[in-house]
Amino acid sequence: MPFLNLSHVTTYTYKQPVSFGEHRIMVRPRESYDLRLLDSTLDIDPAPSEVRWLQDVFGNAVAIATFDRQASRLCFDSHTYLQHTPADVQHVDIEDYAQTYPFTYSAEDMPDLLRSIERQHADPLRQIDSWVRRFLGNGQTDTLTLLSDMTSAIRREFTYVSRAEKGTQTPIETLTRRKGTCRDYAMLMIEAVRALGFAARFVSGYVYDPSGRDGRVGGGNTHAWVRVYLPGSGWVEFDPTNGTIGNAGLIRVAIARDIYQAVPISGTWGGFPGSFLDMTVAVDIAIADAAIPPTPILTADLKETAPC
């Protein structure tokens, strides 16, 4: 039951002062049965004229910032103190009818899962379908074993490479190149399990190593993984980048049907062409002292002296 200090700083720099349009910020961890926020602050420099909070269609916490001044630097500094209670992977309990694949979701669940079952990327040559069949037995296949084997195979057979540029490879590109980032792996696995009829969602958040010995990759930046709906346990986490199952070491921020709905920070700027210089992202997670008292959450510091 670790207590964690989480810092996420994103800084944009420009050659000369530019104006800023509306920015959408989705970096606040998502509270749930396994995640309790004790303190959360968002510092923005330069100070926006207004910050308002909302919940999107998936229930993610989103801050909307608007600006009325120009600057040559824009910094978003998010700090969170939280308590994480990861579930034991052995507690993935699946209803009897869904313990072996294939199975069909219940009539009560299906209407709400349909959009998460629909495939989002074209596969005209059925390459994803061919790849995913390797995880099926000749008859019925244990459901959790199927998903576990797929998660492990991506971790073992693909080469992880960090990539700062925007965008995501298509699942076909990842399958062909046999390498990619955590977001590429997540989208490949989502399309693969959807090809089998599973409901799956994209998750954006943070990864840390609970034991200090796992050697998990994907830290120092935001991380991406997959949720699959399993009757009896609900949405279960699968991280193909690290080959893990369950929520140990994973801090959810955004859950969405597709990656474009879970961008941590997005917005516009106006100025001379070529003004943009760089974007840097720094994420740091440290196990904290549980004795630190909780303080009020969900605040936005609009002072000019934001510590970025």
Rank of each mutant, 00 (worst) to 15 (best):
L146T: 10
Y12E: 08
A224T: 03
K303Q: 09
P210T: 00
R155K: 15
G232V: 11
G215F: 04
T222G: 13
G274D: 07
S148A: 14
R201E: 05
T145C: 06
R201Q: 01
T13S: 15
D142E: 14
Q55Y: 14
A164M: 13
S266D: 12
F20L: 04
Q83H: 12
S72E: 14
R201N: 07
L4Q: 09
T176N: 11
Y97N: 05
D258E: 15
V18E: 04
E191W: 01
G167N: 09
S78G: 00
A282Y: 02
T295G: 10
I172C: 05
G59W: 05
N60C: 06
V92C: 12
V253Y: 00
R178C: 10
V62R: 04
G249D: 06
G139D: 13
P124C: 02
T145F: 01
F67Y: 15
D258Y: 07
L302T: 11
T100I: 02
L42C: 06
S116D: 13
A164R: 11
M150I: 11
T66D: 12
S148W: 10
S78A: 15
S7G: 11
Y33F: 11
C308F: 06
D68T: 10
L196R: 05
V161A: 08
F3Q: 02
T170E: 09
L188M: 08
T13D: 11
Y33S: 14
Q120I: 04
G219D: 13
A288Y: 01
A186P: 07
V51I: 15
T11V: 15
P273T: 09
L302P: 00
D123I: 05
S148H: 12
A87F: 07
L277T: 06
V226K: 02
D88F: 08
R227G: 00
G167R: 03
H23F: 03
V132L: 08
A107N: 09
L188P: 03
D214V: 02
S148G: 15
A61D: 13
R126I: 00
A291F: 08
S78N: 01
L250C: 03
G234H: 04
Y105L: 10
T141F: 11
S32T: 05
C182R: 01
Q16F: 05
E304L: 09
M279G: 01
A195H: 09
T85C: 08
A256M: 06
D149G: 02
D88L: 12
I94L: 08
W53C: 00
P46N: 03
E95F: 01
V161N: 07
L250I: 07
S78P: 00
L54M: 14
A199C: 01
Q127R: 13
W53Y: 11
Q70F: 06
T280N: 12
V18K: 00
R52S: 15
D88V: 01
S130K: 09
P294S: 11
H8K: 10
N242T: 02
L175F: 02
V193M: 03
Y208A: 03
R227W: 08
D109R: 04
I190T: 10
D77A: 10
D45G: 00
A153R: 10
T170R: 01
N242Y: 07
A87Q: 12
A256T: 08
I297E: 07
R216A: 00
I172K: 04
A61T: 13
I285D: 07
V62P: 04
D284C: 03
D278N: 15
Q120C: 09
A199W: 02
E157M: 06
